[in-house]
């Protein structure tokens, strides 16, 4: 049995203004094996973040099921941790305080918290910044804190919602590289949402391509690039092939979006 089992998932919202029911995700079925790195890519509005947040237990499921190790997900749990975009750090807490936050919530003993938090702060290379506050850090450093905070609670599954979305291209590449190094050492199952095609391929064992109206899975693409990977694979023919395939999917989505907008106008 796979570690993450999503079966025929449906997620609907009530739009607050019009009161209409909006379907964000429909008919999504996905299995992720323990230790696997799966990325989800798609145009904005394809429900990729919604799917991730539902696995996190932060968005209620309207139909179908999500299970982690056979247990149905109804709420957040210590088996999962989420890395959000950078704005999710507590601005009044130091780096150490932020990394300790998850440990406090999950009732780790006081001594363990500091020791463990420092271990993961060192792992992401911020040992000299433990007393700094988020506003004193760069975007890349803030995301390292976010990753350390998630890893510190020792989850089985690491869920990442466009964690590098707000970073510049160069920082983003460095962070991707470091994330892979950490992941290879920590052996966590990873689900990673992005809208960046290169990032999606570079990180993944498998790339899930999602489409819109309503959000659904268009294709699941296996990436057969041996690990450990380095940036030079970005120029290989193999990588280019994957890149073309994903671009074609997204271009299709863009075209259909323009058609719909044209019809409305």
């Amino acid at each position: 049995m796979a570690q993450i089992e999503v079966r025929d998932l449906q997620i609907t919202y009530d739009t607050p203004k019009t009161g209409e029911r909006f379907t964000a995700v429909e008919g999504v079925t996905l299995s992720v094996e323990a230790g696997e790195f799966v990325t989800i890519v798609g145009a904005s509005g394809c429900g990729k973040s919604t799917l991730l947040l539902a696995v996190a237990g932060l968005v209620p499921v309207s139909g179908g099921t999500i299970a982690i190790d056979g247990r149905t997900v109804t709420a957040p749990g210590p088996d999962r941790a989420v890395v959000f975009q950078e704005a999710s750090l507590l601005p009044w807490r130091s780096v150490l305080g932020n990394v300790k936050f998850g440990l406090e919530m999950q009732r780790w003993t006081r001594d363990d918290r500091t020791e463990r938090a420092m271990r993961f702060i060192r792992m992401v290379g911020l040992a000299n910044f433990a007393d700094y506050h988020p506003h004193q850090l760069s975007g890349g450093m803030r995301q390292r804190v976010n990753i350390a905070r998630a890893l510190a609670v020792d989850p089985k599954v690491l869920l990442m919602d466009e964690p590098f979305g707000a970073l510049d291209a160069q920082t983003r590449e460095v962070m991707g590289d470091e994330l892979l190094t950490i992941w290879e050492r920590e052996k966590k199952t990873a689900l990673f949402v992005t809208h960046d095609i290169d990032e999606a391929i570079f990180l993944a064992d498998r790339v899930v391509v999602m489409g819109r109206n309503p959000g659904h899975i268009k294709e699941i693409m296996r990436v057969d690039i041996p690990r450990p990977r380095h940036e030079d694979v970005l120029d290989s023919d193999l990588f280019n092939g994957y890149r073309k395939r994903l671009r074609a999917h997204l271009a299709e989505d863009m075209a259909s979006m323009h058609l719909v907008e044209g019809a409305q106008a």
């Binding site: 932060l58 957040p76 989420v82």
Partner: peptide, 19 residues
């Protein structure tokens, strides 16, 4: 955003209020 992040770590309403 902060509430959501706190909830993802299992924060209860009590924790969200005080933390």
């Amino acid at each position: 955003d902060l509430v959501r992040a706190a909830r993802s770590f299992g924060a209860r309403p009590y924790d969200i209020f005080f933390m």
